[in-house]
Design a protein around this nucleic acid. Structure first.
Lengths: 217, 217
DNA sequence: ATGCAGTGCTGCAAAAATGCACTACTGTAG
DNA sequence: CTACAGTAGTGCATTTTTGCAGCACTGCAT
């Protein structure tokens, strides 16, 4: 109920709320891209969206959160997908398939690509994302707990939730957004293969340092 | 150089800097415990430490960061320990031993126990910790990259850094601070055993939900 | 249509956080 | 001793963020 990530809205009230949120998000992303984050004030965003500055913080915790609204939606999607996986699947596999299912739609989304461009153009935003993300680990842990019948505070759900977030982040970070989606999926598969094998030291191959003999400081 | 987590200081300048940092941290922790976080202003902390409010933010990013200064020091320790592990050890094992080595000193530290009491008394602080923590995953990934000769942006170091942080957090979270340290170490070992085995679904045992048939909402 | 409860939006005040320019002191070199 | 570079600490202006209390509108029931 009152899930801010959901799209469905019946009453006028709910619809207006979604519209406001959407307007704030859109204005924020557009202005961030145009002028850069530091040249945009909450005031600016709110004037563009037609609400008071105080209202902004009724919707988002920080100025930058409006731009990362996509991540919240993703969290909701992942939880739904994970919950829907057949109970017969082992948790790690369910997690794997969940991410695999969600990613194609994710990287195809225009809003998400815009968000990605933003992060590329203004790397100072990356650290701010972490806060948004921590929410995801929490939510995944919760879903795993539900699945396994364990307490949400137990070791295993926490572990798997954190691992899921780590895998997603590591993969996306290592992925070149110009490359085809398959490469991202391949990296995701690599991560889960590595996890299933007990995280053995990788044997040469890609990702090796381009030879820097005197790097060790 | 100029490592804020280091204790050693030769010149007067460095020493004074450490003293200021220490004074701010001590004042913050004390007042947080006495009156609760929301009843303490940055002004209060700074008056107690004898510096201006502006100076506070030269040392810490947010008001709460002063209280979580311990976590930064821990990060530095972990990186040092991990770097010092013999190169022959597989990364996951090195990570395991690193955490195992660091934990006893950690949980014995008076400052750390104080910090823990604080988190127990004011749970609203817990989410704020996450930001501090994300730094640790980064640092661990860096150290693993150094160890393995992989790029710090490659998949494996990121994965292992994130996993390391997750394991530490999950274990500490599940641990009752009144219990002996051995229990915490046991949980740590469980985590790594589970990781080495490919994160199989746990078979019954502890941590199972205390039977809640109608819990699923 | 009328009244009521719930709650979204707003203004206001205070606190948190940041950028900038300036002062004063430390450490170092002449 | 003196001059100089570097930088911790400060004050000020601005922006970000939060708590509070009132207003206004929606949804619902009569």
């Amino acid at each position: 109920m009152a899930d801010p990530t959901s799209e469905t809205a019946q009453g006028l009230r709910e619809r207006k709320k979604l519209e406001t949120r959407s307007a704030l998000r859109a204005a924020a992303v557009r202005m961030y891209l145009e002028r850069g984050p530091s040249a945009v004030t909450v005031q600016d965003i709110c004037e563009a969206a037609g609400v008071s500055a105080r209202t902004f913080f009724n919707y988002f915790e920080t100025k930058d959160d409006a731009v990362f609204d996509w991540d919240r939606r993703l969290t909701g999607q992942l939880v739904d997908l994970l919950t829907a996986r057949p109970a017969s699947e082992p948790p790690l596999q369910a997690l794997h398939r969940t991410l695999r299912t969600a990613i194609p739609a994710l990287v195809a989304d225009a809003g998400w690509r815009e968000r990605r461009r933003l992060l590329g153009a203004y790397p100072e935003l990356v650290p701010k994302l972490l806060h948004s993300n921590s929410h995801m680990a929490e939510a995944l842990a919760e879903a795993v707990a539900e699945r396994t019948g364990l307490s949400p505070d137990a070791l295993y759900p926490r572990l798997l939730g954190g691992v899921g977030l780590t895998v997603l982040r590591s993969s996306i970070r290592a992925w070149d957004p110009e490359s085809p989606t398959e490469e991202l999926l391949d990296m995701l598969d690599s991560c889960f293969a590595s996890l299933a094998a007990g995280l053995p030291q990788p044997t040469g191959g890609e990702g090796v340092r381009p030879a820097a003999p005197g790097t060790a400081g």
